[in-house]
Design a protein around this nucleic acid. Sequence first.
DNA 1: GGCAGTCACTGCGCAGGGCAGTGACTGCAC
DNA 2: GTGCAGTCACTGCCCTGCGCAGTGACTGCC
Lengths: 158, 158
Amino acid sequence: MPDQRELATAAALALPRFVGSTALFHAAVAERMAVTPTELHCLHLLHGGVSDSPSELARLLGISTGAFTRLLDRMERHRLAERAPDPADRRRLVVRPLPDRMAELAELYAPMARFVGERLARLDRRQLTALVGFLTDGTAAAEEASHNLPDVTQAITS
Amino acid sequence: MPDQRELATAAALALPRFVGSTALFHAAVAERMAVTPTELHCLHLLHGGVSDSPSELARLLGISTGAFTRLLDRMERHRLAERAPDPADRRRLVVRPLPDRMAELAELYAPMARFVGERLARLDRRQLTALVGFLTDGTAAAEEASHNLPDVTQAITS
DNA sequence: GGCAGTCACTGCGCAGGGCAGTGACTGCAC
DNA sequence: GTGCAGTCACTGCCCTGCGCAGTGACTGCC
């Protein structure tokens, strides 16, 4: 029976593997939908209602606004999203997800969604609280760490 | 005080955000090291001792062997890894990580590693067991789902 | 009314990756 | 042993997603 310390080590090892396999899963879904990973990521942001502003979406996706314009072009072509004018500010526009291919997306994610649902249902309140706390704080920590990377400016020769 | 069902929902929502922010963190680290995300991913695989075979690494990274050759070229140029002949099979070669820039990598990951360590230390055995189980099974589920995507072959017109 | 700032957008160049083919090598069949 | 299919890393060629820098439209502050 593993003690607390061993379990913590196991968790620390399992974490990157989980993240890695999840990334590959997303890549596989994107490929199956004939869509780039960035487009898929954007679709998730739109679907989750995180934002509908091009500049903000570009920032969240980690790409430039110029690249986002092209990305939107592709997404419109593939009927994943559409542009709409922003009534409040005529410079801006609003990005809206299209329902056209959402069913397809849901179908691809169904197995994973089912797994998550079933697995979470087997946890009690204390376990779920710990999980939610870890994920939430981890999200904040990752964002904070992204914007606060230590300076390790070393020269690359060649 | 949230009940079990609400907590499960919260966890299901927190999960994709965590994965997303983690992905962006990796991208930020890669950029800071002047390295592509794929190279960084490869570096993790090498560092974790997952494999040292080019074809297997290519498979794990989700790229072709041809692309991996170029990736290895870049990694050698940046002193991240080196090629070595495989004594058992002269077609093969062995990829070895170089210690040169490992300190730099560790430094960039230090904040996140510290967070994970501290956060995990606050959990009890039952909570850790749940977390490890979720991550481990999640990894397996993601891999299985990647290779078993439902057929949603729809035509993209244009 | 001018002016700096912000918005989405566009030409251009770059680089990572896929594809298909190549030579070197292995191990199995016979 | 000798052939032969399979596998290995590698190489041209091409495609495409993205950054960069500049542009016109528009906003809001002074």
